[in-house]
Amino acid sequence: MREFPLEFRRRKKLLFYPEQPERFTADFLEIGPGNGDFLIRLATRYPDKYIIALELDRPRFHKIEKKLSRRGITNVLLIYGDARVVIPQYLHSCRFERVYILFPDPWPKRRHAPHRLMSLPFAQLLAGLLRPHGEIYLATDVRPYAEWVAENIVQVPTLELRGFPYSNENLIRDYEETFFERVARREGAQIYYLTARRRR
């Protein structure tokens, strides 16, 4: 599958919080933190860990920025930008212990498939950013998307998918129900969890 063209994404100005980052290395990465509640809980639980969060929606970026500032959280670098642009440009030398992708937009229509996160090239990119035995966690309420992600992950030799093709039991470390999961469950949706571990 072809990758989604990113020219218009690159033209967008990246935003950072803090505005002048001191570092682009971290222990954890979250792609698409949504309203930021899980990110804040994780940062509070692990004050000695540094976290990078990438948010593509500008209003959400500013909402999370305010939450981090009000709580005085200093172990998070929040970036407004497309993960497929930011990671190769700024995070290529990172080695993460964990990567969280919780309820990304599944882009369910076939013609929108190139927009989806966790294509095979993107899964390969993330695999290269993991520490030995580091893990990628993904949660979604869309079964075809979960199956599509699993199909891509199993093609990456350095990744081992647990609970193939997905699990209905939560295998995500330090996970707590997110806003989007609460909405999905209220609507009667089934949740699918995927965990991929770097083999070495």
Rank of each mutant, 00 (worst) to 15 (best):
R2V: 11
E3Y: 06
F4C: 12
L6S: 14
E7C: 07
E7M: 11
F8V: 10
R9E: 15
R9L: 10
R10A: 14
R10P: 05
R10M: 12
L14G: 01
L15N: 10
F16Y: 12
Y17I: 00
R23T: 15
T25W: 00
T25C: 13
D27S: 15
E30F: 13
E30D: 12
E30L: 13
I31V: 15
P33T: 11
N35W: 08
D37W: 07
I40M: 05
Y46K: 10
Y50T: 11
Y50P: 00
E55K: 11
L56C: 02
P59W: 03
R60E: 10
K63G: 08
I64T: 07
L68G: 06
G72P: 08
N75V: 11
V76G: 08
L77N: 01
L78Y: 00
I79L: 04
Y80K: 04
Y80F: 15
G81R: 08
D82V: 05
R84A: 12
V85E: 14
V85Q: 09
I87F: 06
P88I: 09
P88W: 01
Q89N: 12
Y90T: 07
L91R: 00
H92T: 13
C94M: 05
E97L: 13
E97N: 09
V99H: 04
L102P: 13
F103K: 00
D105P: 09
D105I: 10
W107P: 00
K109S: 06
K109P: 01
R110K: 15
R110G: 02
R110E: 15
H112F: 09
P114L: 05
R116W: 09
L117V: 13
S119R: 01
A123S: 15
L126R: 01
A127H: 03
L129R: 13
L130D: 02
L130I: 05
H133I: 00
E135K: 15
E135C: 13
I136Q: 02
L138Q: 03
V142W: 15
R143W: 00
P144G: 09
Y145T: 07
A146Q: 01
E147I: 10
E147G: 03
W148P: 04
I153L: 15
V154E: 04
P157M: 11
L159I: 06
F164H: 12
Y166C: 05
N168G: 04
E169P: 02
N170M: 07
N170T: 10
L171I: 15
D174E: 12
D174L: 08
Y175L: 08
Y175Q: 07
E176C: 06
F180P: 12
E181G: 06
R182S: 09
V183C: 03
V183N: 06
R185E: 14
R186T: 07
Q190Y: 00
I191M: 13
Y193D: 05
R197N: 05
R198M: 08
R198P: 04
